[in-house]
Design a protein around this nucleic acid. Structure first.
Lengths: 330, 330
DNA sequence: CAACCTTGCGGGAGCGTTCCCAGTCCGACC
DNA sequence: GGTCGGACTGGGAACGCTCCCGCAAGGTTG
């Protein structure tokens, strides 16, 4: 920076002013400085800047270390949105979603003096880890605890699940079964609630809840059970991969979809349209989630006052394909 | 840090020595300092440290901004491995894999004074962007240009594809068709080469190459063509998602797998075992790739001498399932 | 026993920025 | 015509560390 100042014939201070676009710099000097910067190929040292300002153009993200479609999609969408706003993204992935490891990840980020924090931690154990956070750090939680997190961006799981269930009921099914995600995930809990809501509203009988773990394997396991129950004509699964496993189990038992059993999934993974049959599913808008998160986070960073207790809920949309049909005549 | 020094009754310098585990500190003072650190809840400021040392405990990763299974798996595996070695990971995702945007991402990382750089950029256009890099920055390329990148960790695409093709030939098929990934990807090119090698070695006739883009849709599109050709009895697809689309197309045309047509995929996505039929595929070991990358990168960082021109090749393994059978009798 | 090395510790400079304060110049005002 | 305010610029301190040097005490050597 001193070199630039020397070459431009000004002080280091003026260079700094040009860099930060302070108003009180005359046009000629501004141009001189710009020219010197270009000539020397000078790039400001962000580390020094961070040291003196106490903050950096870096956002920390805590995310589960997983190839699960939902979190992974959130993560990449968020990275892109943050970059578009001029922020770098520091990812601290956590192997398991327990309080301890989430707290560790958060502390690592704090050590790096991140400007803000995004937590994609869709389980209850994230709550306590976040509660002990310093008050003044901008924080956005994605798909977090609706009861607790202050600034929260979330997919409307309940509405999505309700849509899915009602879509099946509207096709004429007496009731709808559900294979859920792991109980400790808020996403899974929300989808169960939406399913229950829809059944209650329609006055349909609520079948026992089957529990999966997001994996195709769990859909297959539960599917082997469901295939043997003749009264099952409609199933809503907590995600598309569970649906895939279910499809496999039903096919092995010779039960045809959608003629005998209708299925609706959740997530709209890119492959869902090529399942056999193409899967009717519910699509969350991950880009919208990411954009909203960045927006809320930057609002906190810019205003300097975190915890606005703002909320954004992104409504998913039902994508009808071929896995839903009226129930068979008895 | 001054507070800690005061409380422990030593100088700031001694505190620094304790922090960095310098040898010349007596045991009693070391303990006093440790106690003071604990009492004050002191955490060293990594930014200041980075400023003076000129480097940081952060690794920059350039990766395509995509939900593609391969790159996404690499990324999460790498994050975890880096964290286990005490490094934070800064992700700079790039929307498109052209030279310009890769160069931008690299420069962003350099501004942040990362300790090293990992580039997951499996296309030729990444080469020029990397060539202009300062000599002294530790760099590891994952699945990069075999002709060019100095330190390279890569899945042995050729061997995997050869295994897949030979597996089909061994089942009795006269030849094997191939639906490839996008031509500009090294991964795709390697798989094509392995397929050609195996056919040549077996003296089998080489059918025309069909080109996909990793998506199920492209498998479906090519599949509609293949379904109409009675001579096709075996297909090796560049990844599992293409295989899924192919399965769908064949099923729509009433052609049965594996009775009429055998298929082998690549990647072993977690869902592959639940396709109809369960897909025989080739599994790359992403964890091994990540571990090797971190290892090579840390070697460069520690030694201070980058570009060791070290190479690591990770051999994938064939996972036999139900999508391969002998060809039908004419 | 003098000269020397080793161990343990402290003082001060410096990394590359930004922030605070002060200074100069010029036009405007009474 | 002197005073005042605004626009522009510069000098120095500070951010929180690490590195370089110096110094004292004790042990070792010839």
């Amino acid at each position: 920076m001193m070199d630039v100042a020397r070459l431009a014939g000004v002080s280091h201070q003026t260079v700094s002013r040009v860099l930060n676009e302070h108003p009180n710099v005359s046009e000629p000097t501004r141009l001189k400085v710009r020219a010197a910067i270009a000539e020397l190929g000078y790039r400001p040292n962000r580390t020094a800047r961070a040291l003196v300002t106490g903050t950096s153009k870096v956002i920390g993200v805590v995310a589960p270390n997983t190839a699960l479609y939902g979190p992974a999609s959130m993560l990449t969408a968020f990275e892109q949105a943050a970059q578009d706003s001029g922020f770098a993204v520091n990812v601290g992935s956590v192997r398991s979603l327990n309080e301890r490891s989430i707290a560790d990840a958060v502390e690592r980020h704090l050590d790096q003096r991140v400007a803000g924090l995004v937590v994609i931690a869709p389980v209850a154990s994230a709550g306590p880890a976040l509660a002990r956070l310093p008050e003044d750090i901008p924080l956005v939680t994605i798909d977090g605890d609706p009861e607790r997190a202050s600034t929260l961006v979330t997919v409307d799981q309940v509405a999505g699940a309700r849509d899915a269930t009602e879509h099946l009921l509207a096709a004429g099914h007496a009731t709808v079964w559900h294979i859920s995600g792991p109980a400790e995930w808020f996403d899974a809990a929300g989808r169960v609630r939406g399913w229950e809501d829809a059944l209650r509203k329609a006055g349909a009988e609520q079948p026992p809840l089957l529990t999966g773990d997001w994996s195709a394997e769990s859909g297959y396991r539960n599917g082997k059970l469901l295939a043997r129950l003749p009264e099952v004509t409609a199933v809503f699964t907590a995600n598309d991969h569970i649906a895939l496993g279910l499809l496999r189990a039903l096919s092995e038992h010779g039960r045809r979809v959608p003629e005998e059993i209708s299925i609706v999934g959740f997530d709209d993974v890119p492959q869902a349209a090529y399942y056999s049959p193409p899967l009717t599913t519910v699509r969350p808008d991950f880009d919208a989630v990411a954009t909203a998160s960045v927006e809320l986070l930057l609002a906190q960073i810019d205003s300097g006052s975190p915890n606005l207790t703002a909320r954004r809920t992104i409504a998913p949309t039902l994508i009808p394909r071929d896995s839903v049909a009226p129930p068979p005549r008895r």
